[in-house]
Design a binder for these strands. Structure first.
Length: 109
DNA sequence: AACATGACGTATT
DNA sequence: TAATACGCCATGT
């Protein structure tokens, strides 16, 4: 396996529960700046036995990378919420503390 | 070598 | 906020 993939897997494995990192950030931490797209490939090719916390990797825009409603989207949302991370229906991810009480009570609209 | 593709990122409208 | 556009880079054809 290419060494780059292993560096990426390490970076992902190092993300603590309840936290999230963007693909670009993971790439940077792996010593591969500007290789965000490669992070996606690496995760897709990652052996299941590594049990990587792939769900903690999201877009730089703070949302889940999959189309809302898709199989993988629901899977990732569930894994994140299982760690206390809030995920709205559009894939928006916010760590534990709500940005504002309004947002929590009334939603994004 | 040219071109398309993708679990991306940023800037601009 | 959403839609485009363009940059980026490994892979596969």
């Amino acid at each position: 396996m290419a060494e780059a993939f292993e560096r990426i897997w390490e970076a992902v494995a190092a993300i603590p529960p309840g936290a999230t990192l963007s693909y670009g950030e993971v790439a940077r931490r792996a010593g591969l700046p500007r290789r965000a797209r490669m992070v996606g490939s690496a995760l897709g090719a990652a052996p299941r036995e590594l049990a990587l916390p792939w769900h903690r990797v999201i877009l730089a825009s703070g949302r889940i990378a999959f189309p809302p409603g898709s199989k993988l989207f629901r899977k990732q949302a569930e894994l994140l919420r299982r760690e206390g991370v809030l995920v709205d229906k559009k894939g928006g991810v916010s760590s534990g503390e709500p940005a504002s009480l309004d947002a929590e009570l009334w939603g994004p609209d």
